[in-house]
Design a protein around this nucleic acid. Sequence first.
DNA 1: AGACTAAACGGAGAAATTTCCGGATGCAAC
DNA 2: GTTGCATCCGGAAATTTCTCCGTTTAGTCT
Lengths: 212, 212
Amino acid sequence: MAAQGGELAGPADLPVLGQPPAERADAARSRRKLLAAARAMIAEYGGVSCLSMDGLAARAGVGVGTVYRRFGDRGGLAAALLDDDEQTFQQAFIFGPPPLGPGAPPLERARAFLHGVLDQMERHADLAALVETRSPTARYNVSAYRVARMHLRQLLRAADLDIDPEYLVDALLAMAGPSLFIFQRRELGLSLQQIKAGVTQILERLDPGCPA
Amino acid sequence: MAAQGGELAGPADLPVLGQPPAERADAARSRRKLLAAARAMIAEYGGVSCLSMDGLAARAGVGVGTVYRRFGDRGGLAAALLDDDEQTFQQAFIFGPPPLGPGAPPLERARAFLHGVLDQMERHADLAALVETRSPTARYNVSAYRVARMHLRQLLRAADLDIDPEYLVDALLAMAGPSLFIFQRRELGLSLQQIKAGVTQILERLDPGCPA
DNA sequence: AGACTAAACGGAGAAATTTCCGGATGCAAC
DNA sequence: GTTGCATCCGGAAATTTCTCCGTTTAGTCT
């Protein structure tokens, strides 16, 4: 529900069985208007806290109901806004050059991946935090998290640690979660590098290949 | 601001310099009324989602303004409700018997401590999640987190791992955060034991003393 | 007791979120 | 083109969160 990725759908006249029947033209238009307006508002204000569903509707020139139909709620709006950048990142860790993409040893890729997630946070921590206001588990149900989870779990399996990847994957991603990131960055005063170094240290320690 | 721990203050006629000048009698009364009413509402409804500041005020027979004066916002109310149990837990890991209390080796205490945090989550995950609705970093500014953080960091220092305790402490606590816990428990279907086992595995792996 | 002061109280009301549904509109089938 | 229908739109209204400020009250000092 969070991200319907309208742009990626095939030609509208060739509906795929079992798929939602393609977005209607007027719906797509108001989606674009809304996302553009939202980005403009964030850019102008310089922050995410100015994003009210009310104000967004007014700014985009649509009714409030439309905003809610599109995004469900504030969290859904934030998730939709995040989608763009996420897709670039996803391309990078699936098809891009090593160490992020294929070619490097799994644990090295995992490290690069987590650093990548932290880079995402550096850019969009507030938006990511906004997603979590929907419900405690909203973060885990966004498609970006699902993809990230699957990818990292695969790497951990390949690394053949003696730790259950099924558990470890979420534990590692929790270290790169938005709220912790904001706390470390803005209240603890850590630099992005320091945070990355922390993750690296832990990851190295988990590798049975090089126990100090 | 979150937890003023009124019960613990000394005699009201002996104000301590530099401290907030002790809670007034009427304030204490309405605080008790509010906390009792809140607990009653949660118990009756069987969940935390029925807790509206409006409804609570009505139920406790005070004005809305009073609720906000006491707790600041929904998150503050949740933090206040959590305080009781936290204090029992704090007693246990500071003064209680090993392995939670003093006497066991530091890493063993750290493990017991994290298991204890998870036990807290098992009981109060929803309330803990509610705290986070205040702001992304609300969790980290609640006194319970501060105490937990200080304690665990001390243990990690004593354990003398080759990982910066300053970073590791928050990383470990992130694995026991409310939103991840709710996700693992209710959507992934993990048992409390499974989650504890995951934490144990990671902690063991971090110990340079016993590299597989 | 009487008066003074700082704190607490209450509830109206501003602001935001979210729901709801009658009406409009795109889209496909004929 | 027009018919049928699923979808979308709009904005009023219900709900909830939170603020503000005039009034009341507890605690203290004389």
